[in-house]
Amino acid sequence: MLVLLPPSETKADGGRGAPLDLDTLAFGELTPIRKQVADAVVTLAADLDASRAALGLGLGQLAEIDRNAELWVSPTMPAIRRYTGVLYDALDFTSLTRSAKVKAGDRLAIGSAMFGVVSATDLIPAYRLSGGSKLPDLPTLTSLWKPALTPALADLDDFIVDLRSGIYQQLGPVPGAVTAGVVSEAPDGSRKVVSHFNKHHKGLMARELVQTRRRVRDINGVAAVLADAGQRVEITSPTEIVVVTDQPAPARR
């Protein structure tokens, strides 16, 4: 089983790893596009105004441009530690047991506008680039990634649970992958799609799928893992599962 996570705009600073080496990343067939995108991001960083426009940054986020300028020389850390935010708070990688952390390295991959997809253990620097960003002199990121990323993921001999958000699914759709949604249910039985807290609950899903000892090979196995963890789940189609909650997620720490 491989669980695909979305990235996050927020990222941890620093790292102890050597500077970015694309040849060490998983999915080596993506290396040419990775280099093309990374070089474009570094070049863009030399123009402050163009960077702000392309990346959608405010005046208080200029440090993000510095990160991009130093992409090839800044220290790295494992991707699972680099990405932060609501989903990664809920996943809470640091609190996993040693054996669960090993499983996370095998079972988790993270979608990325910069790298297409990386394994949880791949060493990456901090950067700023979103799936909807438009880099000057390049096609859209979807046009760049989709022809290479979809085949790379589809060729995996693995059952895939795709927890990426919509924009990152568009970068590389995976036919037949199981997707997940979250809805909240009011006391009167009415339901609405959870938006912000969707990330929290997907983080909890990923945590349970990392820790489980079950051999998950289909959507029924995913539902069983989540149900074992006390989540209320419904299979709504052969490739879609929904978690039903009546409580909001806790505030981010």
Rank of each mutant, 00 (worst) to 15 (best):
K35W: 05
K35C: 07
K35S: 08
K35R: 10
Q36I: 08
Q36S: 08
Q36H: 07
Q36E: 09
Q36N: 08
Q36M: 10
V37R: 00
A38E: 10
D39E: 12
D39I: 03
D39V: 05
D39C: 06
D39H: 08
A40M: 07
A40E: 05
V41L: 13
V41G: 00
V41F: 01
V41M: 10
V41S: 00
V42Q: 08
V42E: 06
L44G: 00
L44T: 02
L44K: 01
L44M: 04
L44P: 06
A45C: 07
A45P: 08
A45V: 05
A46V: 06
A46D: 13
A46Y: 11
A46W: 08
D47E: 10
D47P: 09
D47R: 10
L48Y: 09
L48R: 13
L48V: 10
L48Q: 14
D49F: 07
D49R: 13
D49Y: 08
A50P: 13
A50Y: 11
A50C: 13
S51E: 04
A54L: 10
A54K: 05
A54V: 06
L55I: 01
L55Q: 01
G56R: 06
L57P: 05
L57H: 04
L57A: 04
L57G: 03
L57C: 03
G58S: 15
G58A: 09
G58W: 12
L59H: 10
L59A: 13
L59C: 06
L59Q: 11
G60R: 12
Q61G: 03
Q61S: 12
L62G: 05
L62N: 09
L62H: 08
L62I: 12
A63N: 11
A63P: 02
E64H: 05
E64C: 05
E64R: 09
I65W: 04
I65G: 01
I65K: 01
D66S: 12
D66A: 12
D66I: 02
R67Y: 14
R67L: 12
R67K: 15
R67G: 14
R67I: 07
N68A: 03
N68C: 07
N68H: 03
E70M: 14
L71F: 13
L71S: 00
L71W: 02
V73I: 15
S74C: 06
S74I: 07
S74V: 03
P75E: 07
P75C: 10
P75Q: 10
P75M: 09
P75A: 13
P75L: 11
T76C: 09
T76F: 02
T76Y: 06
T76K: 04
M77K: 15
M77P: 01
A79H: 02
A79T: 04
I80A: 01
I80Y: 02
R81K: 14
R81H: 14
R81C: 05
R82C: 04
R82N: 06
Y83C: 02
Y83R: 02
T84N: 11
T84R: 15
T84V: 11
T84A: 13
T84M: 12
T84F: 12
G85N: 04
V86A: 09
V86K: 00
V86I: 15
L87D: 02
L87M: 15
L87W: 02
D89C: 11
D89V: 08
D89W: 14
D89Y: 14
D89A: 12
A90F: 01
A90R: 01
A90K: 01
